[in-house]
Amino acid sequence: MDPVFLSGQLFTGLSVASLLLLTALGLALSFGLMRVINMAHGEFLMIGGYLTFIAAKLMGPGFLWLAFPLAFVGTALLGALLEFTVIRRLYGRPLDTLLATWGISLILQQAARQIFGSTGVPVTAPAWLSGAVVVHGGVLDGLTFPHVRLFVIVLSALVLGGMWWLLNRSPFGMHVRAVNQNREVAASLGVNTRRLDMLVFALGAGIAGVAGVGLALLSPVNPTVGAAYIVNAFLVVVVGGVGSVLGAGAAALLLGFTTALAEGLTSSSLAQSIMLILVVVFLQWKPKGLFPTQSRALEET
């Protein structure tokens, strides 16, 4: 195969994986901590995208400075609200949570459809992101790296690093890990687990909102964009191992690259199917994902 084409595919795969990773991070967190399957998580991505669109309308070219805080805070607040009104009432009933959050995703999608219309709204990337790095000479002559995609990759690397620091080096992260291992013991040691649940859920939603900014830069935002990402994001969580940030990162890359490669070899839709089936085969080999959580308390549920 043509090395330029192959590298281009891999690069695109990497940028798609980056967005997938940001979407999956929040899911991995809330799934690991609360065993909650949030089907409305993709809608946080969508809302992040629309908030970017609004920021661009308000601010013009320099909108990114507004878009990031707006998307993060907006979706995080919405996440906290969702946690408080619905998810909190369904603890211990993961399958029911799944259905309820799917209902919420339908409502959010329909709301978006009525406010912004069902066709995608475009966001023009600022001038400094509109160029591309082009390779000259050598075997990879002609390979282009669009700035926007580079930006998205750097963004998700930064967020991943921040999350890793937050979970493994900060007191907040210590609480999260403690609750992850044994909720009751953590609670009896003075961790406010309810508040922690809400914070983690809001944080996950906020990260998805940030991913929405990246998404808006890459393609127009439409009401079903979240639904398009959600299934794959869940697969990332399952493949990575529940509640593992590192696992989610590795799985997102794996899935992104596999799809990009299969897409290069066959058609886009076949690639998608192949990838989904590969995931099921992978689970035969490692049913608990790449980085299984080492808590035996989780085994039987």
Binding site: F31, R35, I37, P94, L95, L98, V231, F234, L235, V237, V238, L276, I277, V279, V280, L283, P287, T301
Partner: peptide, 12 residues
């Protein structure tokens, strides 16, 4: 089991 089955069947 559980939500894994839901996710896998949805993916399929």
């Amino acid at each position: 089991t559980g939500v894994y089955v839901s996710i896998i069947t949805q993916a399929l």
